[in-house]
């Protein structure tokens, strides 16, 4: 709803004035597409600015998906704007040479180039072997440059924005967009910099997982729910973009120290896993809705985890344990090999304290000591057969919380639907977007 208002706003501004008439429908359509592309691009800053009020109804993992689709739309409209003029009114476009062309026309071309590069660098980050941190810096840099260039292009061209009445309103819309950017990139990191945390412990959890324990040096984190995550920046500065989302693994009533469990999977997380106690850190959160607290009236839970997707599930289980919540929980936990199963002993311990039933689903079981005596295991991948076999028939109405790689979740979802699990009872959190 808010998004729709944001998109329509520029058009309302234009039509509120007395827009100049032009006999060419195609030219006007091209301008219309240009404004639409700009509105869609502006909306991206609201989506990615972590503004809690706007994002509350959605799962945090869906925002990047939404961001991606809307970005394609924005670039498609931009290309449409360009193509229509190119095909029907090539004279309007002037010369390509930036020395001879008016600056605002060059700005338009720069904007188009920035946004196309944004999409290509995001869709093909792995193929281009772009490091996550550098990709993020490039992404923010290109987005800001492209957007500024696009604003320059619109104001410079002056179509529909040049009349006295409209100009003020148009500037207000522009200032609102700029405000979103200032909030995300300056105000929020500045607030974080005023509220540092300190790493007090870096603990080995086995299976390569490290747990960082942080103590607030100022305000503690308040009101987080089990399974929520926060953006963590260690060392450096909160302005640096060198931050990653991690699940808060401490149960909410066990503050003010909070901990994050980190499995070094390359890029920057290996560096985080080596953090020394005493290092300053910054936290932005909490975010996310992957929590048992959303389902206070459920009779039980089905949880499905793939690999490192276990972390938000662990946080939820810790909360159930801390509250002595004895509702049944059936956990299917998929890993490629038995050796890489994280929190194996921790899960076994919890199963003695709460009504937790864990089944480890191992794709490539070892040749020896298999199956293990003291754990329930299954071989292969989580598919429809396995779900039907392992999940209790009485649990179809229970919340089904899944977290893992997107292909795994996309394969499981239809199987659950077929078993009769209502759509509203399937909650998922996807790990890894770009």
């Amino acid at each position: 709803m808010v998004a729709a208002v944001g998109l329509v706003l520029p058009y309302l501004v234009i039509l509120s004035g007395d827009p100049p008439r032009d006999p060419s429908l195609m030219r006007n359509l091209s301008y219309g597409l240009g404004f639409g592309a700009l509105a869609l691009a502006g909306l991206q800053f609201a989506l990615t600015g972590r503004i809690k009020v706007l994002l509350r109804p959605f799962g945090a993992d869906i925002i990047p998906v939404f961001h991606r689709f809307l970005s394609w739309g924005a670039v498609a409209l931009m290309l449409g704007h360009f193509a229509i003029l190119y095909l029907w009114h090539k004279d309007d476009m002037g010369v390509l040479n930036p020395l001879a062309a008016p600056a605002y026309m060059t700005a338009g071309r720069v904007a188009l180039l920035c946004f196309v590069t944004l999409i290509v660098s995001s869709e093909f980050r792995k193929w281009l072997r772009l490091d996550y941190l550098w990709w993020r810096r490039l992404h923010v840099g290109l987005a800001l440059t492209g957007f500024a260039a696009a604003i320059w292009h619109v104001l410079g061209a002056g179509h529909f924005t040049g009349q006295d009445g409209t100009r003020g309103l148009w500037l207000a819309v522009t200032v609102a967009w700029a405000g979103l950017i200032v909030h995300t990139r300056l105000i929020r990191p500045w607030r974080q910099s005023r509220n540092p945390w300190r790493v007090v412990e870096n603990r080995d959890e086995g299976d390569d997982i490290r747990t960082l324990v942080l103590e607030p040096q100022g305000r503690p984190l308040r009101d987080w729910r089990p399974g929520q995550f926060a953006w963590l920046a260690v060392g450096g500065s909160p302005f640096s973009l060198r931050e990653h989302p991690f699940t808060i693994s401490t149960a909410p009533d066990k503050g003010p120290r909070i901990s994050f469990s980190i499995k070094p999977l390359g890029d920057d997380s290996a560096r985080l896993a080596r953090t020394k106690p005493g290092t300053t850190a910054w936290i932005d959160g909490p975010y996310g809705v992957f929590t048992v607290d959303r389902e206070a009236d459920a009779d039980g839970f089905v949880m499905i985890a793939g690999g490192v997707g276990i972390t938000p599930i662990m946080a939820n289980l810790h909360a159930l344990e801390a509250r002595r919540d004895l509702r049944p929980v059936h956990l299917l936990y998929a890993n490629d090999s038995w050796d890489e199963v994280a929190f194996r002993d921790e899960l076994a311990r919890m199963a003695t304290r709460i009504d937790l039933h864990v089944t480890h689903v191992i794709q490539n079981p070892p040749d020896r000591n298999w199956p293990p005596q003291d754990h329930q295991v299954a071989e292969g991948r989580i598919d429809a057969d396995l779900l039907a076999r392992l999940l209790p028939a009485k649990g179809r109405d229970w919340p089904h919380m899944m977290c893992g790689p997107a292909p795994m979740l996309e394969a499981i979802r239809p199987a659950l639907r077929q078993m009769g699990v209502p759509l509203g009872r399937i909650h998922s959190e996807i790990f890894e977007m770009v």
Partner: peptide, 30 residues
């Protein structure tokens, strides 16, 4: 919310933008 719903919502917003562009173009064409 599932990814397909996100796609549908995104397509609706893009369609809305497109519709606005067409309305604008028709309105200001003399």
């Amino acid at each position: 919310m599932r990814p397909r719903l996100a796609l549908i919502l995104a397509l609706m917003l893009i369609a809305l933008t497109l519709a606005c562009a067409v309305v604008l173009a028709v309105t200001v064409t003399r």
